[in-house]
Design a protein around this nucleic acid. Structure first.
Length: 494
RNA sequence: GGCGGCGUAGCCAAGUGGUAAGGCAGAGGUCUGCAAAACCUCUAUUCAGCGGUUCAAAUCCGCUCGCCGCCUCCA
């Protein structure tokens, strides 16, 4: 089945056919660098990172451009507040953004242009629009004339009348139409500026993305992404600018990710309910956050809450718990993955496992081909983990056949991990880390635990179960759970 | 007011015409000295409600109710 994507422009899923066969050109709106990135940025960037990786995995040569908006009113405001040059603010938060994206495990886009590095391209584009009569100068500002662009608002499928019906009336004498937006803004005294045909000023918010995306990807390219909130006005205005300038279709497929809510409320600075990526990653492992973000479809709203994150953490432990068992079973064995179905007949659960293992990548592809359905893809993975646990639980020593199947699975799950960034750690190390993190929050040291376990072991040897249970209860009271097995007693933190 | 989306088990969630994936939580069982882990079984005759189309609907259409987003900076 070919890839299908939900295109905001048409409001439906469409077969994905790139402009140039075999190649995908993709642009995603990055951040305005004036503050720390939050969980909403995490979602948008994780989603498009996975789309980027998936497109490459299915064989496309992908050019992925993600910009930094490094000149903007909000940056200037913050700079004024701190009494520093605007570049100090933008540089600082570009660094922070890069660190956060790295911490989330994202790949670098093909290029990450900055608005201030493309002022000449921006001026050229504004100039073209003025020449074509699509924009007009008003003082030192230049505005885009929305009424002259026939298909304005086609992305949100609204009309200028619709928009104004509920809009606040904000009269700006210099605008010919209230919906006209700034392409170029005159610099007020003390503000950063660049020389232009209209005097000293800076670009408006939307023009940089039209200019930079076309510069790197051409006048018509395949995918343009961003959060749902960018549909209007940002993307609508990008279309207006680009298509009026070139007379061609700007973007073929518009992809928009849903919002992250906090306890069912919209995240916003005024409500004070937003979480930065740094805060979240200090409390949860990066893969836990990714599992949470990918557990719902990228277009759905997603509710960030302690309970939902705790569920993701449990899910992650389940994944690594099983992967660790697999690695144990495979340790020191040379599995012949090429000969899965000859030799002794498989029992029922082994057959089921074989079938699910052999179809795993196909089912992964099928899920991802359906508008990047990561939730379904993850469901398939959990399903097969259950099968594996079942097979491993049936005998203490897995058969050679089972080992082969597991080796096959292990290799495929690594392949999937390369795209979704989940299950890519060394399982024993992950579990160890989780245990360590939790242990740090308890009032008991590892040495004390091990000592108590040893004492319990000797008590059990002499069948002194009273003392043995006493020790176990003591540890349970401290959130330490003991796991007895043939190999001895291990422990984990609740 | 206009435009758009959503409503699937206690919670999260997939499923857009063929008879309800998966996760978390819970109950019973196997195992265990007892537990835990793991496994097995169970937990939605039903998809907000009502009506319609169809051999067949959670899926399509209409209406009602409820929630949310956008229309202003925002991932």
């Amino acid at each position: 089945m070919p890839l299908r994507v939900f295109n905001t422009l048409s409001g439906r899923k469409e077969a994905f056919v790139p402009v140039t066969p075999g190649k995908v050109k993709m642009y995603v709106c990055g951040v305005t660098v004036y503050d720390h990135t939050h969980i909403g940025h995490a979602r948008a960037n994780v989603v498009f990172d996975i789309i980027f990786r998936y497109l490459q995995w299915i064989g496309y040569e992908v050019t992925y451009v993600r910009n930094y908006t490094d000149i903007d009113d909000k940056i200037i405001n913050r700079a004024n507040k701190e009494g520093v040059p605007f570049r100090e603010i933008s540089e600082r938060f570009i660094r922070e953004f890069d660190l956060d994206m790295k911490a989330l495990g994202l790949e670098l886009p093909t290029c990450q242009p900055r608005a201030t590095e493309h002022i000449a391209d921006i001026i050229r584009l504004v100039d073209t629009l003025v020449e074509k009569g699509m924009a007009y100068q008003a003082g030192g500002d230049v505005y885009y004339c929305v009424e002259k662009f026939d298909s304005y608002l086609k992305l949100s499928r609204r009309t200028l009348e619709d928009m104004q019906a509920g809009a606040r009336i904000e009269v700006d004498e210099r605008k010919r139409h209230p919906m006209d937006f700034a392409l170029w803004k005159e610099a007020k005294p003390g503000e950063p500026f660049w020389e232009s045909p209209w005097g000293k000023g800076r670009p408006g918010w939307h023009i940089e993305c039209s200019a930079m995306s076309m510069k790197f990807l051409g006048e018509t390219f395949d995918i343009h992404g961003g959060g749902k909130d960018l549909v209007f006005p940002h993307h609508e205005n990008e279309i207006a600018q680009a298509e009026a300038a070139t007379g061609r279709q700007f973007v073929k497929y518009w992809l928009h990710n849903g919002f992250v809510n906090i306890n069912s409320e919209k995240m916003s600075k005024s409500l004070g309910n937003f979480f930065t990526i740094k805060e979240v990653l200090s409390r949860y492992d990066c893969e836990v956050l990714r599992l949470f973000l990918l557990s719902a479809h990228y277009r759905s709203p997603l509710d960030f809450s302690d309970q939902n994150m705790a569920e993701a953490a449990s899910g992650m432990e389940r994944i690594y718990g099983t992967l660790a068992r697999i690695d144990e079973a495979l340790a020191g064995k040379q599995a012949e993955t090429s000969s899965l179905s000859d030799g002794n007949p498989l029992n029922e659960s082994e057959s089921e496992l074989l079938e699910k293992t052999e179809s795993l990548l196909d089912r992964f592809k099928e899920a991802m081909d359906d508008d990047f359905n990561t939730a379904l893809a993850l469901g398939n993975v959990f399903d097969i983990l259950r099968c594996i646990n079942k097979v491993l639980g049936e005998s203490s020593v897995p058969s050679e056949k089972t080992v082969s199947i597991l080796a096959h699975f292990r290799s495929d799950i690594r392949e999937i991990g390369k795209i979704i960034g989940i299950g890519i750690s060394v399982p024993s190390a992950y579990l160890e880390k989780i245990r360590g993190d939790r242990l740090n929050r308890l009032e008991i040291t590892e040495e004390e635990i091990i000592k108590l376990i040893e004492e319990r072991a000797s008590a059990r040897k002499t069948r002194d179960f009273r003392r043995s249970d006493e020790i176990r209860d003591l540890l349970i009271a401290k959130n330490i759970i003991l796991l007895d097995s043939a190999q001895g007693t291990s422990w984990k933190v609740k």
